[in-house]
Computed example of a mutant assay.
Amino acid sequence: MDKVTSDDYWSYSDDYENYTVPSDMSRTHAAPCFQENIYSFAQRYSPVVYILVFLLALVGNVLVLCVIRRYRNSQSGGACAFSLTDTFLLHLAISDLLLAFTLPLFAVQWAHQWVFGLAVCKISGALFSLNRYSGILFLACISFDRYLAIVHAVSSGWKRNTCHAQIACALIWVCCLGLSGVDITFKQVVEMDTVGQHRALLCQVWFTENSTQWQVGLQLISVILGFALPLLIMLYCYIRIFRSLCNATRRQKRKSLRLIISLVSVFVICWAPYNCFQLTDSLQKLGLVTGSCQFGHVMDIGTLITESVGLSHCALNPLLYGFVGVKFRRELARMCKGLLVQRSRMGMEGWRERRPRRTTGSFSSAESENTSYSVMV
Rank of each mutant, 00 (worst) to 15 (best):
M1K: 10
M1S: 10
D2Q: 09
V4G: 00
Y9F: 13
W10Q: 11
Y12T: 08
S13G: 11
D14E: 08
N18G: 03
P22N: 15
S23D: 06
S26Y: 06
F34R: 07
Q35R: 15
E36D: 15
P47N: 07
V48H: 01
L52E: 02
L52Q: 03
V53F: 01
V53P: 00
F54C: 11
F54K: 03
L56T: 00
A57P: 01
V59A: 03
N61K: 02
C66V: 03
R72Q: 14
N73K: 15
N73M: 10
L92E: 02
D96Y: 01
P104R: 04
L105M: 06
Q113L: 05
W114D: 01
F116Y: 13
F116C: 06
G117W: 04
G117V: 08
L118D: 13
L118H: 07
I123A: 14
L127H: 03
N131P: 00
Y133V: 00
Y133G: 01
Y133F: 15
S134L: 04
G135F: 01
A140T: 11
C141L: 15
Y147T: 04
A149H: 09
A153T: 10
G157P: 01
R160Q: 15
R160G: 13
R160L: 10
T162C: 15
A170N: 10
V174F: 13
C175S: 11
L177D: 11
L177Q: 05
S180H: 07
S180M: 11
Q188I: 10
E191T: 11
G196K: 04
R199E: 13
L202R: 14
L202W: 11
Q204Y: 05
V205N: 07
I221N: 07
S222Q: 10
I224D: 06
L225P: 00
L229F: 12
M234Q: 11
M234N: 08
L235A: 11
C237P: 03
Y238F: 15
R240G: 04
L245Q: 13
T249H: 14
S256T: 08
R258Q: 08
S265G: 09
S265Q: 08
A272N: 06
F277H: 14
Q278R: 11
Q278A: 09
T280N: 10
Q284V: 04
L288M: 11
Q294E: 14
T303K: 07
T303F: 09
I305T: 03
T306V: 12
E307W: 14
E307M: 07
S308P: 00
N317I: 12
L319Y: 05
L320K: 09
Y321T: 00
G322Q: 04
F323M: 13
A333M: 07
A333H: 10
M335H: 05
K337N: 15
G338R: 02
Q342I: 00
G347T: 00
M348H: 12
E349S: 06
R354A: 03
R354T: 02
T359E: 05
G361T: 11
S362T: 10
S364M: 09
S364F: 12
S365E: 13
S365Y: 07
A366S: 14
A366F: 12
S368G: 14
E369R: 10
N370D: 07
T371K: 04
T371W: 06
